[in-house]
């Protein structure tokens, strides 16, 4: 019987929302690849240009000349020295870091910069589901069929996560293709050095933790999928609580964005246990050559926190909807 519910719920959300979601991410990806390519003219920076710029930045920290607008937690001069060695190692051995080719575009731009857009899109469609059926009155016929309410709630949630998975996979594929056409596909097995070990002034690859680029990409995508599972659950909860999809969408997006803005200014550690901290978790993956690097939160922590909150949200939405008077 649950397979029937799943069949129904996926049919509804696919028919209703899949095309528009794919269209939206297509537009964004095309803008970020072809749009940027033609706007920036011939001045395409190579990864070596970027790395050289970063080395120059770190050098200013070593020399005590860091500009005052670099707020946050700056690396110490010693850390900066080490970063310079790491970056130099990449240059010397021709190991790209944040390169232009397709693999790096996916690992960096799609997984890190586009993650928040995905979060908002999935929060939106999750907030719609039950509330939209209430608003349009279809919930009345649906809930008089001989199936239990919690199964319908769960079926809707799984439908949303299937949609999220398809959109995520499609975005990766499209981004890889578009960037590859413009800048080349590069190699997906090139190494990504996560935590370099420096021995006698050079990086010891056997002691450093590293993984091939494709694995780095997949880890980021999986992490992002967990944050979608979390906001999807949050959206379902508001959807179960409210009878109007506009209200549910507003409450969900307000919570997601408001929480992130609000927590950004808090310096305590307790926000580390809240899901907002990990809404774009792929950004927490190491290999961040940006200055300042800020406090890195561990990936394991992100995984645990996101899973726990997703479970809390989805069980509470099932509970809320199970007991609710349907007065739509």
């Amino acid at each position: 019987m649950f397979t029937s519910i799943l069949h129904n719920e996926t049919q509804k959300i696919f028919k209703r929302r899949l095309a528009i979601l794919l269209l939206a991410v297509t537009a964004v990806v095309i803008m970020m690849t072809f749009g940027e390519f033609y706007l920036s003219g011939s001045a395409h920076k190579t990864w070596q240009d970027n790395v050289n710029n970063k080395i120059a930045d770190y050098q200013r920290i070593v020399n005590g000349q860091a500009p005052s607008e670099w707020e946050g937690k700056l690396p110490t001069p010693d850390e900066a020295k080490m970063q310079i060695q790491v970056l130099q190692y990449h240059l010397d051995n021709n190991i790209p870091i944040n390169g232009n080719d397709a693999g790096w575009f996916v690992a960096d731009t799609i997984n890190k910069e586009m993650a928040l857009l995905m979060v908002l899109l999935i929060a939106y469609i999750a907030a719609e589901t039950l509330a939209q059926e209430s608003g349009e009155g279809t919930i009345k016929l649906l809930m008089t069929t001989p199936v239990s309410r919690w199964q319908v709630t769960l079926g809707k949630y799984i439908g949303i996560m299937l949609t999220a998975t398809i959109v995520l996979a499609y975005t990766l594929f499209l981004g890889y293709l578009a960037d590859g056409i413009l800048y080349g596909f590069g190699s997906l097995s090139q190494p990504v050095i996560l935590s370099p070990k420096i021995i006698n002034g050079s990086i010891d690859m056997t002691a450093s933790s590293h993984m091939p680029l494709w694995q780095y990409i997949l880890s980021g995508t999986l992490l992002n999928w967990l944050s979608l599972a979390c906001v999807g659950g949050l959206g379902m909860l508001f959807s179960a609580l409210l009878n109007n999809s506009g209200a549910a969408i507003g409450a969900t997006l307000g919570t997601v964005i408001g929480g992130q803005v609000g927590l950004g200014v808090i310096k305590a550690t307790w926000p580390n246990y809240l899901f907002w901290k990990y809404l774009t978790p792929a950004s927490n993956l190491p290999i961040d050559i940006n200055i300042p690097s800020g406090t890195q939160v561990s990936v394991a922590m992100a995984v645990v926190v996101l899973i726990v909150w997703a479970l809390i949200f989805i069980t509470s939405s099932m509970f809320v909807f199970e007991k609710k008077d349907i007065l739509a």
Binding site: R16, L141, T144
Partner: peptide, 14 residues
């Protein structure tokens, strides 16, 4: 049972 409650609101996009 089989039923209609108030208006028979069905899925317009199906």
């Amino acid at each position: 049972i089989g039923c209609i409650v108030e208006n028979p609101e069905l899925y317009k996009y199906l």
